[in-house]
Simulated assay, not measured.
Amino acid sequence: MTSSSRTTSKTQLLMDVDTGIDDSLALIYLLASDEAEILGISCTAGNVPARQVGINNLAWLELCGRSGIEVALGAEVPLLAPLMTTEETHGPQGIGYAELPAPRTRLSARHAAQLWIDTVRNRPGQVVGLVTGPLTNLALAIKLAPELPTLLKRLVVMGGAFNHPGNTTPCSEWNIAVDPESAKLVFDAFSGLPAQQQPIICPLDVTESIVMTPQHLVALAEAAGSSPITPPSPADTKGLRSATSNPLIRQLIDAVRFYFEFHQEHQQGYISHMHDPFAAAVALNPEIASLRAATVDVELSGALSRGATIADWHGLWARPSNAWVALTTDPEAFFEQLIERIGRFARNIPSAE
């Protein structure tokens, strides 16, 4: 097989993130996936401010030995709403208790919206967009280049809640709640496109079934050949740091421990919902989820329901479908793949940082 044929066989990805503990794991999962080619990473404000998102992405890439991927700063505020961030969920820097060395590389000179536009224009019909944060950058790109949805191979979005409670308000999910105007603009832009080009939305309905436990971290450390293997425990002193030998596994454990503590404080158990890595897996292989076609819209004006995602499953609005909604998956099969890939990837990272 030639070099060019290997390249074209890969899934060419443009990531848009608000990194974020689960965004971090999604990035590392894709770096560890042989079939993934990350063309660029655009950064938006969400879990933490956009500039901190950029620092996090650069630092993870350097730790993983992949600093050649372009990282572009995007929107620092939503289209209309005041900025919300959630350091109480993801930690002061967005990566829990992990402490990554300051990156040596710099952010791209391109704005993230321009990165979207240039990338899809240069590779029409080839790029899979993956958005695991608010949709602000993509909305700005579509406003500048309305043809953008037709140039994407596919879009995968982590966001929304349909037949499921919200996690920000009783009926809205975080990524949509931060910038509902952008979400509506993006979903509207895909209306009428062929079914294979309509976005796949990974909502809380399915991502809250992706439950990581301390045992998954044990399996990850074992797969990486990292020792000692001491899983986080609810009996631990809050903020205890990992002493395991592999630098990537150590940082991931420290990041996820914070997420475990957050979920426990909110009466969900000593677990973490890994929303974004699941969306990354769907971007590589949509067949891992059951999908249902729908016309999706976003409530903007409801006093109690602003940011709610609403799906018309039966054509009651008499509008064409504009999305596929992921509803179910096999969580343990997903975790088996994630652990195998990241464990193998981590073995190739030097033990000294």
Rank of each mutant, 00 (worst) to 15 (best):
V206S: 05
P234W: 11
S245L: 00
I229E: 04
P203H: 03
R250F: 00
Q264C: 03
V218D: 04
S191E: 15
F190T: 08
I210Y: 05
P247D: 10
V218P: 01
V178A: 09
S245D: 03
S182C: 06
Q196P: 04
H263W: 05
S233D: 11
K184S: 12
S242D: 08
R257N: 04
L193C: 06
L193G: 13
N175S: 15
F190N: 10
P232L: 03
V256M: 09
Q196E: 15
F190Q: 08
A235F: 12
Q215P: 01
C202A: 07
L204C: 14
H266K: 14
E261V: 02
F260L: 07
Y259Q: 09
I210Q: 00
T244R: 08
R257W: 00
V218T: 08
P231C: 09
I201V: 15
A189E: 11
H263Q: 15
D254V: 00
P232V: 14
L220Y: 15
P194S: 01
D179M: 12
L185Q: 15
T230N: 10
A221Y: 06
I200H: 00
P180C: 05
Q198F: 00
H263Y: 11
V211I: 14
R241V: 08
G239H: 02
I200G: 01
S209L: 14
N175T: 15
L204A: 15
D236W: 14
N246I: 06
S191A: 14
E208L: 01
S227M: 14
Y259P: 03
I229M: 12
P203K: 02
A195F: 08
Q197N: 11
I210M: 13
E222N: 04
G225P: 03
P180H: 14
K184W: 09
E222Q: 13
L240E: 10
A243M: 12
A219W: 06
L185R: 11
A255F: 10
C202G: 01
H266A: 05
L217Q: 08
G239M: 03
A189H: 13
I229Q: 02
A235E: 13
H216R: 04
P234H: 14
P234T: 10
E265A: 15
L185W: 08
P228Q: 12
P180M: 09
Q264W: 03
D254G: 00
A195G: 00
L252T: 12
S227F: 08
H216T: 05
D254F: 08
I253A: 06
S209Y: 04
C202I: 03
F262H: 13
I201F: 05
H216C: 03
E208M: 00
S209R: 15
D205W: 05
T244I: 11
V218Q: 09
A235V: 09
I210S: 02
P194Q: 05
C202V: 15
F262Q: 08
L193T: 13
S209N: 14
P180R: 06
F258E: 06
P194G: 04
F258H: 12
V218S: 09
F258R: 02
V218G: 02
I201C: 15
T237I: 12
V206E: 01
T237R: 14
A195S: 08
K238Y: 12
L185N: 12
Y259D: 13
A243G: 12
V206D: 05
P194I: 07
S227R: 05
T230I: 15
F258M: 07
A255E: 09
V206Y: 13
Q251G: 02
G239Q: 12
V218N: 00
R241M: 10
